[in-house]
């Protein structure tokens, strides 16, 4: 196992992690500010990917596709916040889970109704295709490097927004004490709508960016949603910093687990059995990580007890 190989895998883990962060950031913001469990967050990811694929097919421009993904998912987020989510803020988590699960079914069947059952085509832009050679002779896909850059830039922007702007102050205050900021005259309806649309837009952006290297199809959001929940549980629910660290931990654990565990078992077992056992254990690795974090810090790494 060479150094170059390991560096490439660490980059893969980072890239996976920052994309997970885009998903988890919205989820954790919405939970932190509004106390809402939004299972339909994966559908917003799917909406971003579908909007991007449709726009790219019509115009041929990847930038327009990204803009369309942001707009469509933010709009969808705003609409469901107004129509559905708003009724749920005072209800218990079970009602929220039921209603947002219903939204998953509605969005999935709606997407099938509009776009059909077959996967859509979305390619990476010409300028970012192909591999690039990094120092030490590491060959790495240019697009994945761009994903790492975009993910880090969005994370930095989000930290700035939360720590240094008026809206950020309101968001942090909303996390600390929902009723009090209402009493202080902050328009809580507008704040909720804004946070929800922002979270939705981040999910849509992730969907569009990832859609270019994966399959744009109905149901693509749910596997990512599960990982995003793991991320926010590890990071501490409501904490953006926790979501960032949690996402990187999950990304690196998953990628390196997949690569290193089968090799490790290869020392003990024959290749076919080692591949199978190692792969099985690797798919559990992030859940073992989550369990470990929960035992040591039940509130998550950056959660407030």
């Amino acid at each position: 196992m060479s150094f170059v190989f390991l560096v490439e895998q660490v980059l893969n883990g980072l890239q996976f992690g920052v994309m997970l962060f885009l998903m988890a950031a919205g989820l954790t913001l919405i939970f932190g500010v509004m106390g809402l469990i939004n299972l339909a967050h994966g559908s917003l990811y799917m909406i971003g990917a579908f909007a991007a694929a449709a726009t790219a097919a019509a115009t041929g421009s990847f930038l327009l596709a990204l803009a369309a993904a942001l707009a469509a998912s933010a709009l969808a987020g705003a609409v469901i916040e107004r129509l559905v989510i708003r009724q749920l803020y005072d209800r218990d988590h079970l009602d929220q889970v039921l209603a947002t699960f219903a939204l998953i079914l509605i969005f999935s069947e709606g997407a099938r109704w509009v776009f059909g059952s077959f996967p859509l085509y979305l390619a990476i832009p010409e300028a970012l295709s192909g591999p690039v050679t990094l120092p030490f002779g590491i060959e790495y896909p240019r697009y994945r490097l761009a994903l790492i850059g975009i993910g880090l830039a969005v994370a930095a922007g989000l930290f700035w927004l939360i720590s240094s702007t008026r809206i950020g102050v309101q968001i942090r205050a909303g996390e600390a004490d929902r009723e009090m900021i209402g009493a202080l005259g902050v328009d809580i309806d507008r704040l909720y709508l804004l946070v929800f649309a922002l979270g939705a837009a981040l999910a849509g952006l992730a969907g569009a960016l990832i859609g270019a290297i994966q399959s744009v199809q109905v149901g693509m959001g749910e596997p990512v949603l599960i990982l995003a929940f793991v991320v926010i549980v590890i990071g501490g629910i409501g904490s953006i910093r926790g979501a960032f660290i949690g996402a990187l931990l999950v990304g690196l654990t998953d990628t390196l687990g997949r690569v290193l565990l089968p090799g490790l078992f290869g020392l003990l077992l024959d290749p076919a059995a080692a591949a199978s056992v190692g792969a099985s254990l690797a798919s559990m690795a992030i859940y073992i990580l989550m369990a470990g974090v929960l035992i040591a810090r039940p509130q998550g790494l950056f959660g407030s007890a």
């Binding site: 895998q9 893969n12 890239q15 996976f16 896909p141 994945r144 990832i210 290297i213 994966q214 399959s215 693509m220 596997p223 990628t255 997949r258 690569v259 089968p262 591949a275 199978s276 190692g278 792969a279 099985s280 690797a282 798919s283």
Partner: peptide, 12 residues
């Protein structure tokens, strides 16, 4: 190599 069922990223 065995991958996870439903896996969507094959960079590793």
């Amino acid at each position: 190599v065995y991958t996870k069922l439903g896996q969507t990223d094959y960079a590793a």
